[in-house]
Design a protein around this nucleic acid. Structure first.
Lengths: 157, 157
DNA sequence: TTGATTACAGACTAAAATGGTCTGCGATAA
DNA sequence: TTATCGCAGACCATTTTAGTCTGTAATCAA
C-alpha cells in the first residue's frame, strides 16, 4: 500500500541513467536492462509508454534506442508515474476509477484526504529526474520534510 | 499504485466518527458498518488491529464496543495506516519487505526516493484524525501544498 | 537486397495483494 | 443463562502486478 510499482522503479532508473548521459545520447533497452538486472521485455514496455507520453524519443533502428525528448529538469517524477501507470489517487474516488463509492453519501473525510493527496502529487511534480540523480544535499528544499511547516502541529519526531 | 487500501479508508472513517463523539464515548462495529455501508466482518478485523496497536480500547460486552484510547489529536493518520497495514514504504526496499532487491547493487536513486518517502510519512504523521474531521480551512498548514516551499523549483501548476 | 538490430504490439500466464465471506470461540452484563 | 458484543483465523474471489512468449515493423550496413 502506498507503494510505487516496479515498472515505475524501472522507469526512474532508466531515465536517471539517460539524464546522466550526454545531451541527446541514445540508450537501448537491452543495455539498460542488463545494467540494472531488469527483465528486458518489461523494460521495453515501460520505455514504450514513456515514448508514447512524449517524455523520450525512440530511434527504431540498429544502434538505435531512446533519448530524452525533454531536458531532465522538465521531466518530473509525477509525469513518469502517470505515463507508466495512469492517473494517481491515494483513494480510488479521487482518480476517476471508482464510479460508485459505497461511502460517498456519508464520507466526511474526503476533503482532507484529497488535500493530503495534492501534497503528495505536488512533491512528485516538484521532483525532476535531474534531482533524482543528484546528491542528497541538492534535494534539501524538495525532500527534507523537517523544514516544511511553520507550526509543528502534533508531530513528534 | 500509491493508493490507500479500503481497510485504511474504513479505519479512518470509523476513527473520525469516534473522534466526533463525546469524550470516552463507545461505538460498536455493527453501527459504524451500517452507517458507512461497510461489510461488518471487515470493519471488525480493522478495529481489532487498531485495538491491538493501542489506538482504541475495546469493551467486550453487550452495549460494549470501542472507544478512543488516546486523544484524537494524538492519533496520526500514519499510526492508523501502520496499525492496519504494517510498515509503509513507497519502494519495497525501504519497508523491510524486499530482502533481495535485484537492483540494489546498481541502484542510484534510492536516496532521493527515500527522502521523498520521508516527506510523505511526515505528512501522514502530522495529520491527526482530529484534523481529518475538520473543515478544510483548519488544514491549511498541513495540507495546502502551494505554500510549502520557499523556491518553486520546476513545478508549473 | 538481405540480414542483423532495434523498437512496437499484444496475448498470455503466474504470483501477489486485496477485498470479502464463513465459522466458531470468549467475555460480560442484564 | 442468554443475548450481545469482541476475538480469531481459515477460506475464497477478485484485482493488480509482474513476468513470459510470440510475432511484426523500421532502419541501417554489409
Amino acid at each position: 500500500m502506498l507503494k510505487l510499482t516496479k515498472k515505475v522503479d524501472y522507469a526512474l532508473l532508466a531515465l536517471n541513467l539517460m539524464a546522466k548521459t550526454e545531451e541527446g545520447g541514445i540508450s537501448n533497452v537491452r543495455d539498460i536492462a542488463a545494467l540494472y538486472s531488469i527483465p528486458p521485455e518489461i523494460l521495453a514496455k515501460v520505455m514504450q509508454k514513456l515514448s508514447k507520453s512524449g517524455l523520450i524519443q525512440s530511434h527504431n533502428a540498429p544502434k538505435g534506442g531512446y533519448s530524452l525528448k525533454l531536458p531532465a529538469e522538465e521531466i518530473s517524477v509525477l509525469k513518469v508515474l502517470v505515463a507508466v501507470e495512469g492517473p494517481v489517487g491515494i483513494v480510488s474516488c479521487s482518480d476517476g476509477t471508482d464510479k460508485s463509492c459505497q461511502q460517498r453519501g456519508q464520507c466526511d473525510i474526503r476533503s482532507p484526504l484529497e488535500k493530503l493527496q495534492n501534497n503528495i502529487l505536488w512533491f512528485l511534480e516538484a521532483l525532476s529526474i535531474r534531482e533524482l540523480g543528484q546528491e542528497p544535499a541538492v534535494l534539501k528544499g524538495v525532500t527534507d520534510g523537517s523544514s516544511l511547516f511553520g507550526q509543528p502541529l502534533h508531530h513528534k519526531g
